[in-house]
Computed example of a mutant assay.
Amino acid sequence: MIAENTKAPAFTLPDSDGKMVSLSEFIGKKVLLIFYPGDDTPVCTAQLCDYRNNVTEFTKRGIVVLGISSDSVESHKKFGEKHQLPFTLLSDTKKSTAKAYDALGFLGMSQRAYVMIDELGEVVLSYSDLLPITYQPMRDLLAKIDAA
């Protein structure tokens, strides 16, 4: 994973409507990037629904949540609507953003990981689950965010 206390790599990716979204749009805001292997898989669905269920915890901390996987714009649209995800999903089909954040696993799939970026564009937290079939409990993530 990308090292903490480094500049977050810039990126521009399409969202589930095909609109291009750049990290630079969020300067002045905290951003949580959620890297995940794939839409509508059992663990990823549970993971992103956990973020959905706790979105107010991020909102009250002033954090913008962005989900990133290599799935297509169309896949993200269906997945986001099906599970009523209240945050933006970005399509990294070339895996360039996952590579830039060192979030690719040994099989070429995105790791289950997150990166917290502060208002100035610096990485303040980065974490990756070693086993792709689990993810870090939300209370642990929120505790790390509060301590950062």
Rank of each mutant, 00 (worst) to 15 (best):
V123W: 04
K99F: 01
N54K: 13
P14N: 03
V115D: 00
P14Q: 12
E74K: 11
K29M: 11
A143Q: 10
K7D: 11
L130N: 13
K78T: 12
T134Q: 10
G67D: 00
N54Y: 04
K94Y: 08
E119G: 02
V31G: 01
I68G: 00
D15M: 08
D15A: 05
M20P: 10
N53M: 07
V65M: 04
G38T: 10
A8G: 08
S16A: 14
T56D: 14
M1S: 01
L120M: 12
M1R: 06
S22P: 00
V21Q: 06
V115N: 00
S75I: 05
P42W: 04
K95A: 06
I68L: 08
V55I: 15
I117G: 00
S75C: 01
L33S: 07
S126P: 05
G18L: 02
L125I: 13
A147D: 08
S72C: 12
G108R: 08
I34N: 13
M20I: 07
N5R: 06
G108P: 02
L120Q: 15
F58Y: 09
D15P: 03
F58C: 02
D146W: 12
I68W: 03
K7E: 14
S96I: 15
K30I: 04
T93S: 13
S72N: 14
L89A: 06
Y114A: 05
P132H: 08
A8M: 11
V73Q: 03
K77L: 12
S24T: 15
L107E: 14
D71E: 08
V55K: 08
G105M: 06
T41P: 11
R112N: 06
T93R: 10
E81W: 06
A98E: 00
A3R: 13
V21A: 02
S16P: 01
